[in-house]
Design a binder for these strands. Structure first.
Lengths: 209, 209
DNA sequence: TGTACATCAGTGAACGCGCGTTCACTGATGTAC
DNA sequence: TGTACATCAGTGAACGCGCGTTCACTGATGTAC
């Protein structure tokens, strides 16, 4: 069923309203991307099928495939920025509540628009379960052991060992995810990791000031 | 030059040593993946070109493409777990130094083996600069503003506003990156975000205990 | 030692497929006179 | 009002390409007798 043409095709836009198809294509591309691993799997033909239009019709609105992907990316970023701004306006008084609303907006965006989110953050989907030996779970428990050892040596954590382990792994991963896309950023990963380590503990490490 | 066959091809393995090609293929696949956006762009023909072998030769060692990708993923995870364990052994006494060595090992892995890292963490490469309107920079400054506002209202941060903003964005992104791959995890994103918010401040928010 | 045969590592050409893209077109709706 | 023409939204068939995969094969190295 996935990626099928919509039932009954679609009505042609009225005279002078041809631009509507552009929006339809962008939305369809976002949806198709949501059911897909990543952009590399996105095809113009699948998008056209989803809209209910001939593949050639896309070329009236986008010069080629990469232009469509570019437009989609800009669309995704703009929506996210808009979301952040409107989240800030919902909580005019309390700065901390405002910040929390913004962070939650990012979360909700990632859930509600998986295709766009993954596109702008360069993410590829791969389904796993915790039983899958190819899941991050084994890495989490590896780090959680290390954190528990710290606790036994007297260090105090601000979260449970398991949650702190997830925080470390996930934070570093997020950093790498973003810095991989930049030419200069890779050397800062270790600094970021140290910041993150500092955060999960109550007090800074004496030996790594 | 990228993805070209190696100069002069490659010598055939001696009798009884055919298994060597399997390793060569896995290594080549990892390297090809490092120069690529993601697995969807990986082709058996590119891997074969990189090894210096005919595409058909791959089928003596892997039944099909997905089996090669599976093997590559298992290879990647195993190397990462090994790395975590050996990092732990380097620092037998101090638990906190041991933990730090492990976290740094993850960082170094991501830098040294970008292809495998991105494969196992479901990451896709997209090059950007900070000037690119399609970069995460605008999101960072959006959040940094919110954090500065908190400081002006008397809240104390454990990092600078900008570093804290990156931490928030990147941490949430990391969590989403991992939970997107799981069927159940998405609802926990908000909890994780609250944990992260708590961490960047000196004291917990009174209104969100 | 020679020789017939088995086993091995790897090849080259071909297949069918879905892709991005092009191009001449169709039929409906508006506009000039 | 009628009619010729321009403009519009969108189509269908075709192209060349690189892909995953198959299959009969080649030539070197080992082994049985």
């Amino acid at each position: 069923m996935t990626g099928d043409a919509r039932k009954g095709g679609r009505a042609r836009n009225p005279w002078g309203r041809g631009e509507r198809l552009r929006t339809d294509i962008l939305e369809a591309a976002g949806e198709v991307l949501g059911e897909l691993g990543g952009v590399d799997g996105l095809t113009l033909r699948a998008v056209a099928r989803h809209v209910g239009v001939a593949p050639a019709s896309i070329y009236a609105h986008f010069p080629d495939k990469s232009a469509l992907v570019d437009a989609l990316m800009e669309h995704g970023y703009q929506r996210m920025v808009d979301l952040l701004r409107s989240a800030a306006q919902d909580e005019p008084g309390d700065a901390r509540a405002r910040l929390r609303a913004q962070v939650h907006a990012v979360c909700r965006y990632s859930i509600g628009h998986p295709g766009l989110y993954r596109l702008i953050f360069g993410l590829r989907l791969r389904r796993t379960t915790d039983q899958d030996p190819r899941s991050a779970h084994m890495l989490v428990s590896e780090l959680a052991d290390g954190l528990s050892a710290c606790e036994r040596q007297g260090a105090r954590l601000r979260l449970s060992a398991e949650r702190a382990a997830i925080m470390l792994l996930v934070g570093v991963h997020g950093w790498v995810a973003i810095s991989h896309a930049r030419s200069d950023g890779e050397c800062q990963v270790l600094e970021f990791a140290d910041d993150l380590l500092m955060l999960v503990f109550e007090t800074p490490d004496r030996e790594t000031p």
